[in-house]
């Protein structure tokens, strides 16, 4: 559940989600769930010319299983908190 909690902290920040089909979408993280499905708002496709069908998509739901990377804002992660949480998770608590 660590990454679920982690992504919940990022809600409201701008992220770029790169999918396994190479489509990369930038948008405001609206919500995330246990499968790491992601909902984005105010989306913009990084390579718009290559994906004309995405022109009028403003909000979208991305299935967690097709995500390759989530690019985060540089200030989006507090490494110390993440380390602590990781150790806690590793101990099973």
């Amino acid at each position: 559940m660590l990454f679920f909690s982690y992504f919940k902290e990022l809600v409201g920040k701008e992220v770029t989600v790169e999918l396994k089909n190479d489509l990369a979408i930038k948008g405001i993280l609206h919500s995330v769930d246990q499968y790491l499905n992601i909902k984005l708002e105010n989306t913009r496709v990084v390579d718009q010319d290559k994906y004309p069908h995405m022109l009028s998509v403003r909000n979208c739901f991305i299935r967690g299983s097709v995500v390759r990377y989530v690019q985060l804002p540089p200030d989006g992660v507090d490494i110390d908190i993440l380390h602590d949480a990781t150790r806690r998770e590793a101990r099973g608590g």
Binding site: N21, I25, H53, L55, F61, I62, R63, V66
Partner: peptide, 18 residues
């Protein structure tokens, strides 16, 4: 569901294609 990659809401205010 396993075949779904992305579900996008189409903004009726905007053109669907260039």
């Amino acid at each position: 569901g396993e075949n779904v990659v992305l579900i996008g809401e189409l903004d009726p205010e905007r053109e669907e294609l260039p």
